[in-house]
Structures are given as C-alpha cells and as structure tokens.
Write a protein that binds this DNA or RNA. Structure first.
Length: 468
RNA sequence: UGGUCAGUAGCUCAGUGGUAGAGCCCUCGGCUGUUAACCGAGUUGUCGUAGGUUCGACCCCUACCUGACCAGCCA
C-alpha cells in the first residue's frame, strides 16, 4: 500500500498542492517544535525549494513516544501522509502525517549545523554540510538557474557549446600563473644536460598546465563554426588572498566570427540582462532572502541593471571624466594606467549610476590578441563594469591580421613558436571576430550580494585551502 | 606578496593588570495548532602558541601560527 503513494518534492507540494491526496515526503528535519499535549511539528527540507514543508505529527502514531523524540535538526526522515490546508497562519499547505520513519539519526550534541546563526566563515569549515543551510542551498539553486540561463541565451542565438580542454599546452597568455600537470617523479625528475627538468620524458612529452582560459581554442572553432561558447572550469595559481579570487573557477567565453566590438558589446549587454531577468523570475524566494539577510539593496541593484541601458564610452573619455571630476583618488588617474576599482566604481556608481562599457584601452595594459586600432595606441578591448562590483566582463575584438598579430607577439616578448596554430587562424581565411569572458562566480556574487567568492562555489579552492 | 584587523564556552560575542561572563545551541521540566515558538532550571573553558615584563597577565611587550579584510595580480 505505501509503495503506491507518490513521492513529491517540497517544491511540488508547496507550489502545486493537491489537497486531500496521499503523499510521501523524504528529506531532512530543519526544526522540530514539540507540544507535549499532543502534536509535534517538523519542518522538512529536501533542497528542492527555499521553503520547508511543515509536517504535523499527531501523538497517536504508534512510534510517537519511541521514534519522534529521536528526531532532531539534521535527521533524515520519510513521511507518509496527506496534503491538507494548514490551520496555522504561516503556510497554506502542510502534510498531516500518518507514518513517520527516522531514516538517519543526527546527534544534536555534535552536529555542527545547528539552528543558531552561523557565520559564513564558520560554515566554510563544513563545506560538506553547509548546503543544509538556507543560504548555501539558495546559492546552489541560483547557480543552477544561472547555468541554465547561460545555455538558454546562447542556444537561442545559435551558438555551439564548445568543450575546450582542461589540460593545455598553451603557455600563460598573460592571464597569470598556471598549475603544472605532470606524472614525473618529483623526487628525482629526469634532467637535461643543462640541469633543467626534461619534460620530453613527461606524460605528454612536453610541459603542460591546467587551462587559464578556453578563449584561444574557442577562436579556432569560431573561425569555422561562426558562434561558439565555452562554459567550464579554469585555473589560476595566483597567490591571491581576496574575497574575489579562486584558484579554480568557472568561466563563460563566447566567441563570434564576423563580429566587431560594437556587436560584442551588444551581446554582452543582452547576455547580462537575460541572466539577471532569469534569476529574478525563477528565484524570487531566494532573492528575497538575499535581500533580507545578505544585501538589502540587491534586488534594486539588479533591477537597475535590467532597466537602464548600459552607458558606452571609450577609455580615453573615461579618463577625461575622472580627471575633471575633482575627486581625489588614492591612485591618480593618467592616460595609460589601468583603471583601479575605485575609478571603476566612481564611474558606475557616481557618474552614470548604471552599468558602463568601456572600450578602446591603451595597448600597453591589454593582451596581445586584441585588435590594434588605427591610432596605433589603443586596442579594441571592452570591459563591462557594474555598480557594486566593478569589472564583471572583459572582452575584445581579436586581431585578425597575421602580420599585426605577429608584431604584437614579438613586441610583448612572447615566443611565437607555440602560437603557430593561433597564427594559422589568421593565415587561412581570417575573419574579424570578437568575444568576451565572464567569471561565473563573480556573476553569482553580483546576483546574490554575497561578499566572499568562497561562499558562492560549492567547494572553494584558494591558496593553502582545499578541504575536500 | 605587502598593509590593516582579529583569535575568550559547540556557535555569536562582551570583558577588566587582582577568583572567567552573556545570549544562542544542547539537556530536563512547564505551556501551547506551533512556526526565529515561549517560560523556568542545568551542563560547558589550556582565554591561538611560545617567550618576556610584573607580587600577579585573558589584558601590556616580542616572536610565531591561523583567519578575515584591503591592495597588487586578475575573472
């Protein structure tokens, strides 16, 4: 008989109730409120929804005196019962239990995740248990919605999802230190005559690393399939101790053939709007929670990005505005410097009060692959800056002229040898193309208002820390 | 890698050169269709580590460890 009862998720029960129907609920107890006089209330979560379902346990159940006292926060349970209209004021639907089984006990004396308030920092020590809290389960659902919105956006526009390699032979493209991948015996690696480690004897017969970006590989496919995007993990071995850096993070990198910088900027703007709209539509309870418990202005901030067109101006114009602002910055503004976060925030939060897309940066502060402007001083780069967080997207039209690209490689002191394949893309049927990169965890930070990037990825990796 | 701040009960935090504190959690009792439940009682400590100053150090000094934040690097 019980086998025929349908298991429904908490989300299903609360969002499309079927009053009077038998139902099975499986999940974890969040809180228990007891009445010795005759009732126990369980709040059960199964992770499917921000809210929990209230299970009403009557005292006449056969195991009420033996099993119910063993239920504590964190215990897993299976409940058979009926969906009914709640007599309490805080929820429309609840489950009237007919049978409650303790599946896995949880000793409250030693369980690290209690009902009391816990700091994000404390919960970082319990990476495996923190998804049992409101905050971290909400973040996981927001990550999921954002991930699918990313695919929706590009799939609707005919982009191909390209799986670029994790292990790469590319050298760092100015994107920071890389993690070496090797199977050599580190206690006694083979050495060449000059004493250097001989990587020709390594697994791939050469030195390889974990990727810092899929962009260059994405260009290869854009230059044959038109529009592609990557969405996967990337790695940086930088010794960065900040609330905005991870050693392993996810990046989204669209790349479009026959596209210039203006089209690139438009796609980036439409993309961000699509993502924010998806979260506001599909995660209203989560967003309300972040507003109440994390960042009071978060929903207003996202709406402002949705409702205001992004302001576009060149780096040179931005420098003029900053120099004439009369504002005293910690770092003085001068044409040619890389803008500091204080400058970026001044532009988005004080001058324009909207997202800003800066274009045409000095070539000296940007990567070798960005297309050189006719002025010979600037490149077709763009940064999308948003209020509260600064740069969230960086992109560029790529240099599509072989001789100019080669000159830039040499100018920056890089070796052209390993980049012959990349030069081939310009040698054989070159086309104008452009793309950008979005740090996924930075996006999640922006959307949720969470202050520390370690709290918006399930299992964070930072220098000195890899708990699981 | 530099700068700043912090480390006291399971958690969040007060605290004073002179006997270690609160709230929460937890346990027990009471009460109640409860819902951040409520009321009462109770348990809980190498005050980060090692030196030093002092009659006496959780407090002052030094070093170290750990963490957070800011900056740089970047996404």
């Amino acid at each position: 008989m019980p086998e025929s009862i349908m298991t429904r998720s908490v989300r299903e029960i609360l969002t499309s109730p079927s009053i009077g129907s038998d139902v099975r609920v499986q999940g974890w107890v969040r809180t228990k409120r007891e009445s010795k006089a005759g009732l126990t209330f369980l709040e059960v979560s199964d992770g499917s929804y921000f809210q929990n379902v209230q299970v009403v346990v009557p005292a006449d159940l056969p195991n009420y005196a033996t099993e119910i006292p063993k239920l504590h926060t964190g215990s897993s349970v299976m409940v058979l019962g009926k969906e009914v209209q709640s007599q309490g004021g805080k929820q429309a639907v609840e489950v009237q239990a007919r049978e409650v089984s303790l599946i896995g006990a949880c000793d409250p004396a030693i369980y690290p995740i209690g009902k009391q308030k816990m700091t994000h920092e404390y919960l970082r020590d319990f990476t495996h248990l923190r998804p049992r809290t409101n905050t971290f389960s909400a973040i996981a659902r927001v990550r999921n919605v954002l991930s699918m919105a990313i695919h929706d956006f590009f799939q609707q526009r005919g982009f191909i999802w390209l799986h670029t390699p994790i292990i790469t032979g590319n050298d760092a493209e100015g994107a920071g230190q890389m993690f070496r991948v090797t199977t050599l015996d580190l206690d006694k690696p083979p050495r060449k005559e000059d004493g250097q480690v001989d990587f020709t004897q390594d697994f791939f017969a050469s030195g390889v690393n974990l990727t810092v970006s899929g962009q260059l590989e994405a260009e290869a496919y854009a230059c044959s399939m038109g529009k592609v995007y990557t969405f996967g993990p990337t790695f940086r071995a930088e010794n960065s101790h900040t609330s905005r850096h991870l050693a392993e993070f996810w990046m989204v990198e669209p790349e479009m053939a026959f596209a210039d910088l203006e089209e690139n900027a438009q796609v980036a703007e439409d993309f961000l709007r699509h993502l924010l709209g998806a979260v506001l539509e599909k995660c209203p309870l989560e967003m309300e929670f972040f507003k109440q418990r994390v960042e009071p202005a978060i929903i207003d901030t996202l709406r402002a990005v949705l409702d205001n067109p992004f302001k576009r101006l060149t780096y040179t114009e931005a420098v003029d505005i900053l120099k004439k602002s009369g504002e005293t910055f910690k770092y003085a503004v001068e044409w040619g410097i890389d803008l500091q976060s204080e400058h970026e925030r001044y532009l988005t939060e004080k001058v324009f009060k909207s997202p800003v897309i800066l274009t045409d940066y000095p070539k000296g502060i940007k990567a070798f692959y960005m297309k050189l402007n006719p002025d010979g001083k600037t490149v077709r780069a763009m940064d999308v800056l948003v209020p509260g967080i600064g740069e969230i997207i960086g992109g560029a039209q790529r240099e599509d002229r072989e001789e100019v690209l080669l000159a830039r490689i040499k100018e920056m002191g890089m070796h052209e040898g390993p980049l012959q394949w990349y030069l081939d893309l310009r040698r054989f049927g070159s086309v104008p193309h452009a793309g950008f990169g979005l740090g996924f965890e930075r996006l999640v930070q922006f959307v949720t208002g969470m202050g520390n990037i370690r709290d918006v990825i399930p299992f964070p990796r930072t220098p000195g820390h890899i708990r699981i």
